[in-house]
Design a protein around this nucleic acid. Structure first.
Lengths: 358, 358
DNA sequence: TGAAGTTTGGAAAGCGCTTTCCAATATATG
DNA sequence: CATATATTGGAAAGCGCTTTCCAAACTTCA
C-alpha cells in the first residue's frame, strides 16, 4: 500500500536501479539532472523506503537491540538514554526489551533469552545486554549469542560476563564499592549493615564483595548482610527485616541503633534504589537520617538530584556507560576496551557531616 | 550467514513450503511425522527465522514504535514500561525513540518527525506518540502520519492531539489539576505560585489551565505563574526565579513566604519532576517544607515512593496509560476509547497536615 | 469399484529493495 | 578519425521468507 520505489522510478522516468541509487545512498551517483527528477518524484509521492526490504537486500538492518531489566528503574533508563544518543548519531534504531517482564511466568533469564532470540530474529546489527548478568549464564543464551556473533552480530555486556565473544564495558563495581567504604571508614563510620542484592546477579554480588573486602582490610565485619531484591522494595524490606531482627534489644532510646559512644550505624546498599528504599524504611520507623542511621548507595542515579537528605553514593557515569556500550556495539573496537570508574559522592545520608566526623 | 529455512527444509527432506508451514505458524499444519522432522532439523541447525524477510512477505512487521520525550524521565519510563508489557503479550517488539535527542541541532519537533519517519520506514504496525503534543502540530508530521494511517498503520497519542485519525488515550489533565487545587483549597491553602511547563506543550498547558480555572472558581488568582522547562531543572530554576523576584521584601524572618496569618504559600507544578526540582530549590534557600512553603506536583511518578517529604500530587496510572496506548495500537478498538482519570494523593509536601488544616 | 471430496506436499510467484553485470554513450588519447 | 577508457543507466538476479495454486495421494460413500 505505501508507495514503492518502482513507482517513484516510473514517475521520474528512470529505472529502478537509478532511483535506488539516488535515494538510498549508493556509491554510484547518477547525474545531477536525473537525481533531481528522482528526488522530486519521491517527494511528490511521499516515498519512504521500506527498511525491511532494504535490510533483506543489504543484509544489515540498522537496528540495535537493548536488553535492560526494568526500564522504569532510573539506572536502566539512564543507560538507555546514553544508548539512544549514540544510536541516533549512527542512524540506528533501538529495539528495547525488559527482563522484568516475564510474559509466561518464566524467570527473568527466560525473558532475556526470549528478548535475545527476538533480536536475533530481527537481525539486529548488535545486541547490548544491560540487564545484570547472572553468575551462571543460561547455556541456551550462550549458544544463541555464540551463533549470533559467528554470523557477524556484535554483543556488548556491562560489567563482566561469561559470554564468549562479548565486548564488555568494564565497570568499577568492586573497586568503587571498596572506595566508598574506605571513604566512610575515613569519616569515622565503623558499624555497617549490608543490603545485598540477589546473590546470583553479578553486579550486586561484586559490589557486596567490594564492601566486605574493604571492611576486612580494616579488620571489620558487617553487623549483618541482608539479602533483598535489587529494587526499592528490596531495600525497604531488607531494612525492616534487619530492624526487626534487633528485637526489643534496641527499643530503649530514641536511637536504638547507636549505643553511647558507638559510631552511627550505616546501611550499605548494593545500589541506589535499594538505598532509597532503605531510607524510606528507616523513616517509617521514626529513625532520623543521618542522626540515627546512615545510608549509602551505589550508582548515583540522576533522580538523586532531588532527594533529601542527599544520598551518599558511588557515582557511575550511567549515560556514558550507555554511550560506550552503543559505540562498542557499532564500531569495530579500535582502542582498548573501555573501563569505567566513578567517584564517591558524599551527601547528607552518610559520612557527610556526621557527629563523629565533624 | 545465519541458517535459513531452505537449509532446514533440505535437512528435513521436505519442501520450503512445508518447512515454513510447520515452523512459522500457518493455517495449514503438515502431518505430525513431517512436522517433527522439520522441528528437529530446525533445532539441530539452530534456525532462527529472519523477521525482516517475514515482514516483507507478510507485510506486517510485528514492530511497534514508541516515541517518548526523555526515557530517563520517570514519567516516560513508566509509560514505556506499560507499553512493553502489552507488546510482550502481543509478541511485538518495541522500537524506542526520544525527542529530547536532537541529533543535528534541530528542535524536538524535528526529532519527533525523524523518529516517526524512521518508524514508518521500518513499517512498524503502530506508532505511539507519548512525547507531549504541541499546540501547533508540525504539518510535515501530520502529513507523514496521515499517509501512514491510510496505509493501515495505527497511531495512538496521549492526552489530546490535533493529529487526524489518531486513537487517543484521554487523560484527565485538566480536571485532575482542578481537583488537586480543589482539595488544597479545602485544606485551607489560598496562596499559590504556579510552575508552568512550556506553554506550547499541551499537557503542561492544560494542567495549568486546570489549576487556574479552579482558582478562579474561588475568585482566587495565583501569586505568580512562572514558566520553566518540563523537567527537574525547570522546576528548580522557576522556583529560584520566583524567590528572587520577591527581592528583599521577604527577607525578614525565617519564613519569608508567610506573613502572619497568611496560609502557607503553595507551589503548583505542572508535573512531579518539576515539583521535585522546586523542593530542591526551596531547600537550597533554607526553606522548610511544608512549614515555610508547600509543593504539589502531578503524575505520581513511581520514584515518589521514596521521596521525603512525600510529594502531594495527582496520581495518574502511568503504566496503565502505557498499556492502554499499546492496546489501542494493536487491536481495532472495540469499546469506547479509553479515558483515564486519577486521584489526588496528599502527602507531607502540601495539604497533608498543614498548620491551617490541622 | 469408481466418482467425488478431502488432505497434504511442493513449485513458483511474489514482497520491495540492492547490486552485479552489461550495453550504450560520452570523453580522452594516439 | 579510429580506438581505448570512463561514465552512466538499465536488466535481472538475488535477499529469505509466505502463500497461492496444483497435483498427487487418500478417504469416503454409493
Amino acid at each position: 500500500m505505501p508507495v514503492k520505489l518502482t513507482e517513484v522510478a516510473r514517475q521520474a522516468g528512470v529505472s529502478l536501479a537509478t532511483a535506488s541509487r539516488v535515494l538510498n545512498g549508493s556509491s554510484r551517483t547518477p547525474a545531477a539532472a536525473i537525481a533531481d527528477r528522482v528526488r522530486a518524484a519521491a517527494e511528490e509521492l511521499g516515498y519512504v523506503a521500506n527498511a525491511q526490504a532494504q535490510a533483506l537486500a543489504r543484509s544489515t538492518t540498522g537496528l540495535m537491540g537493548l536488553v535492560v531489566h526494568d526500564i522504569a528503574d532510573p539506572y536502566f533508563s539512564a543507560i538507555a538514554h546514553g544508548v539512544q544518543q549514540v544510536a541516533l548519531d549512527a542512524r540506528h534504531q533501538v529495539l528495547l526489551a525488559g527482563t522484568d517482564l516475564t510474559g509466561d511466568g518464566g524467570t527473568s533469564a527466560d525473558a532475556e533469552l526470549a528478548a535475545v532470540n527476538a533480536f536475533i530474529s530481527y537481525r539486529t546489527d548488535a545486541i547490548i545486554l544491560a540487564a545484570s548478568r547472572l553468575i551462571e549464564e543460561d547455556p541456551r543464551l550462550i549458544k544463541a549469542l555464540t551463533q549470533y556473533t559467528n554470523n557477524g552480530g556484535r554483543v556488548v555486556t556491562l560489567g563482566t560476563s561469561s559470554i564468549p565473544e562479548a565486548h564488555v564495558v568494564t565497570v568499577a563495581n568492586h573497586d568503587g564499592a571498596a572506595e566508598l567504604v574506605g571513604t566512610l571508614l575515613g569519616r569515622g563510620l565503623k558499624r555497617f549493615v549490608i543490603l545485598a542484592g540477589p546473590h546470583e546477579r553479578n553486579t550486586a554480588r561484586v559490589r557486596v564483595e567490594g564492601f566486605l573486602e574493604r571492611l576486612r582490610q580494616d579488620e571489620l565485619e558487617p553487623i549483618a548482610v541482608v539479602q533483598g531484591s535489587f529494587n526499592s522494595q528490596g531495600g525497604f524490606d531488607s531494612t525492616l527485616e534487619f530492624l526487626d531482627s534487633l528485637g526489643t534489644a534496641g527499643a530503649s532510646g530514641v536511637s536504638p541503633l547507636t549505643a553511647d559512644g558507638d559510631s552511627p550505624l550505616c546501611f550499605l546498599a548494593a545500589n541506589d534504589v535499594m538505598a532509597l528504599g532503605a531510607m524510606t524504611a528507616l523513616r517509617s520507623r521514626g529513625l532520623r537520617i543521618p542522626e540515627d542511621a546512615q545510608v549509602a548507595g551505589f550508582d548515583d542515579i540522576p533522580t538523586l538530584r532531588d532527594h533529601f537528605p542527599g544520598l551518599t553514593t558511588y557515582r557511575l557515569p550511567l549515560e556514558d556507560i550507555g554511550r560506550m556500550a552503543a559505540h562498542l556495539a557499532l564500531t569495530p573496537l579500535t582502542k582498548a576496551p573501555p573501563s569505567v570508574t566513578g567517584s564517591v559522592v558524599l551527601r547528607e545520608s552518610a559520612g557527610h557531616s556526621t557527629v563523629s566526623a565533624d
